[in-house]
Design a protein around this nucleic acid. Structure first.
Lengths: 345, 345
DNA sequence: TTGAAAGCGCTAACAT
DNA sequence: ATGTTAGCGCTTTCAA
């Protein structure tokens, strides 16, 4: 079919009347001493024939293929930046990545098995390791076992899976919760609300840290609402209903939730920062009007990505034994954009 | 070294006292008739041993590996959406992608050879084809030749390379220029400006279309500024300097340029839409204040990505002959966000 | 209905 | 300083 077969070691060897071994060793600088003349001939011919090694063939022999499998949630600017960080660090180390999302953004054809099939794509192509940001902390463990049994290094990003002992790089939720609490307290707020959209680890930790700092302050009240609840809008309207008890210091698990809260509040005639102060997280660069002046946390996603890739590389190359997982947390930075203000008297 | 060798066809065959051929044929449903009993035993054993095929080994035999190489410019939300489109369409077809940017976002270690080295990464891993958004329309052709000679299908996205006869999917610049002109004319503007940041094909085509529509209207003036010019700020200040001749209808090649224009104008006390109307392009979701109410074009990047992947797939699978490049243009949509207004009297 | 054998491109151990 | 050989995991004739 193909008229022009791609040039292989054999072609070069044949052309020069030598062995593929010789050619291989010279091109890879392995195996020591070869005549300068031979070396030159080989290099010249390789260049002339535009030889390019076949990484599949070397990979098949059990070596590393210098490819990482990356599977990540599709969450806008935040995950894009994580990917950028991973990409740049990997490429510095001659490694490229299979990138897959664990959900299709616009296509609805994403059934429950799709995530698992994607993992299989990665395994079948024999990636050296996998960097993963899970969509669901509690889903079926069976394909983690698949990864685990194969001794494929697994690095988790942003979302930890409690039952899996793998390396993890994510946001320092203690710091995040504490910074938010401190900022709102400094502005004079007394009644606080924490809004999450699911009961994931990040939410639990942030709520604990947030509430923890608040509880040390006399005269404060705290309440939390989970947007996964079916009656969350009711809860929110209830919380905002009475001016006397209305929370004025609100921390949200992410920018989506913050926007949603502002939308519900707006429908009640309440707006930030006039009537309440609100903080999101993730710096998602939304075009939604309610996101424009939203004070939020920069979770340093690019840096998270870099750390994840660094961790990946050290796992893949040094083959640290599993069982000593490395946990790295990155301190977030509060970005003051204008949705918080001193408590109006 | 590794205690647990991954299970291969040989393991299954050995366990059952049959040949790898049989196992292979049964698992792949090739080669016709096998006893139902054998078939069942093979499938059961494969599942029990968690067999997964080695795509490297099949790939080495010259077949497709169902992997696309994707190299794309790092341009925020716009390219992220293109990638999403590509990803979803590819995955529907059991294909995954190597994703690489042709520039590092934050790292400065990006010399001129890096882009070429990245192409080599893709070629060495024997991708079935390449989807490429170039950083530079005029750069060295040598690695296109490398791709070309290998009969690797090449699909260009967003930026065309005039000298290469490859498939191309991008924005319909005629429509974009015309829509912008029409919108601004409807608002009563008479003096127009087009700002680009380099002399790429997209800029040339949009300027032509924009100016073309304007020229059919009596009493209009047109001027263009290239932000690649060293004295571009001077030119801009010059253009905005006199109230009598100041352009009030401005089209920019992208949102970056639009923001830059607004910044310079702001320094002169001019703001949109009060003193002039301005349109960007790309809907980049910037957090910059000057981007907040910026009227811009949605270039449908997700759809561009889907089309690119579709085109890729048809190339890779049907092996259409090269030499009949397919050019697909996607119509952009004007997003009215508030940086344009009727000409004030 | 199943098996034997060759080969994809490359590498590594072991000669010479 | 260079060559021989075997084998990675799989597929593909061709034979039994």
């Amino acid at each position: 079919m193909t008229t022009s077969r791609r040039t292989t070691l054999k072609h070069i060897a044949h052309e020069l009347g030598i062995t593929t071994t010789t050619v291989s060793c010279i091109l890879n600088d392995t195996g020591g001493k070869y005549a300068e003349e031979t070396r030159k001939k080989v290099l010249d011919t390789a260049k002339r024939l535009r030889y390019r090694p076949n990484a599949l063939a070397s990979g098949i022999r059990g070596g590393k293929i210098h490819v990482a499998g990356v599977m990540i949630q599709n969450r806008g600017h935040f995950s894009t930046e994580i990917i950028n960080g991973i990409h740049d660090k990997l490429l510095e180390n001659q490694t490229i990545m299979f990138l897959t999302w664990n959900s299709a953004k616009h296509t609805k054809s994403w059934d429950e098995t799709a995530e698992q099939r994607t993992i299989h794509h990665l395994i079948d192509r024999r990636v050296d390791g996998i960097i993963l940001s899970t969509s669901n902390e509690n889903f079926d463990h069976c394909y983690f076992e698949e990864i685990w049994e194969r001794n494929v290094p697994l690095i988790l990003v942003d979302r930890q899976i409690p039952s899996i002992s793998a390396d993890f790089i994510g946001t320092d939720n203690q710091v995040l919760g504490a910074l938010a609490a401190k900022h709102l307290l400094d502005l004079g707020h007394k009644r606080f609300l924490f809004c999450s959209n699911s009961h994931v680890g990040n939410a639990v930790q942030r709520e604990e840290a947030f509430a923890g700092v608040l509880s040390s302050q006399p005269g404060t009240t705290f309440r939390s609402i989970d947007f996964m609840a079916t009656d969350c809008s009711d809860q929110l309207r209830d919380a905002f209903g009475s001016a006397a008890t209305r929370p004025t210091g609100v921390l949200c698990i992410n920018d989506w939730t913050a926007i949603e809260v502002r939308r519900v509040a707006a429908a009640m005639g309440l707006e930030a920062p006039r009537d309440f102060s609100i903080i999101g997280s993730g710096d998602q660069h939304f075009t939604d009007p309610f996101a424009q002046n939203l004070t939020t946390f920069d979770q340093k996603p690019y840096w998270i990505g870099q750390c994840a890739a660094q961790c990946y590389l050290s796992r893949v190359h040094s083959q640290r034994k599993k069982g000593d997982p490395q946990i790295i947390t990155i301190k977030p930075e509060l970005l003051l954009r204008g949705s918080t203000a001193p408590l109006s008297p």
